[in-house]
Nucleic acid binder design. Structure first.
Lengths: 157, 157
DNA sequence: TAGTATTAGTTGCGTTTGAAACGATGTCAA
DNA sequence: TTGACATCGTTTCAAACGCAACTAATACTA
């Protein structure tokens, strides 16, 4: 066409591509656990976080997982109801509660982790250690840049 | 902390990291256009797609953008109401309609593209052509792998 | 041609989302 | 103490979401 404007090619526009990628990967993985355990994405993330850290407050999970606090609150409620997670009051500070996997929760975690690991490994199959490390470093860098950029261009906080 | 189970480190678990990355990038970018034009993410995507391809059916936008058809349908409805997008019936097939930017829509697009491009460039600032190309190739590869994996492990469609 | 299946796009409806308000607890300074 | 303020986590509410059902149109099949 005319070409009068600075073109934007969505196919190579990073925000767009990253979104598609994340969605495809999320959905693919979700298929594996949602059927088997009836876990939502948010719930699985809480389980995964607690599986790794054993004991955490809801706020800590929020910070760590970049999930909204209401999302975490609801995921935890659901998991507690289903007996996968347990709340332990912090006598030092009654506003917060420590969260941890119950025996059942731990079982679900232990059962699913190998599959998650396999999925992750499958994604980067054929890539060397270096390439794999490069991906992680790049992700970290992009996250930082992105935050810096929106602060600079938006000038709002 | 017993270490009895195969560990899963969220920090290096790709599906998790990709999700965080996509969300941060999306939100950062959204800040730039949501304030200025009152566009939702879905709406901006439709505008961006039509800005690039000029004329597309809703289904084509769905396929291209990996958005749900109801999401696209509603985004388009909103854009039509605000006079940014226009529907043109396809006399060849009355089920579908071609969508295109109006003059106003084109103006919004032209106005925002430079910022989007700057944002994109900012993300990969300091990276060479090769590194940048590598990122895109990796994204493509990960998308393919992911889809293949869920088909293999899930065995459901 | 009639009958069935398929496709484009919208809408109804229950679910999920997150911003804002909230109750409950804790902190700090006067 | 007391009062003002901050923080943790839940709840409320309106908006956004996506599945499923739907309408309308086209394509296949016999």
């Amino acid at each position: 066409m005319t070409g009068e404007a600075p073109r934007l090619e969505l196919e190579s526009f990073l925000p767009y591509r990253l979104n598609v990628l994340a969605e495809v990967v999320s959905q693919s993985l979700a298929r594996l656990y949602s059927q088997r355990y009836g876990l939502s994405i948010a719930e699985w993330r809480v389980v995964a976080t607690l599986g790794q850290y054993e004991r955490m407050t809801a706020t800590a999970i929020c910070t760590h997982s970049h999930m909204h606090k209401t999302k975490v609150s609801r995921a935890v409620t659901g998991l507690v109801e289903r007996g996968l997670v347990e709340r332990v009051a912090n006598s030092q500070d009654l506003r917060e509660a420590f969260l941890m996997l119950t025996a059942d929760g731990q079982r679900v975690y232990d059962e699913f982790v190998p599959e998650a690991v396999a999925f992750d490994a499958g994604l980067t199959e054929g890539m060397g250690e270096m390439e794999r490390g490069l991906i992680e470093a790049t992700i970290t860098r992009l996250i930082e840049r992105s935050q810096a950029l929106s602060a600079t261009l938006g000038e709002d906080d």
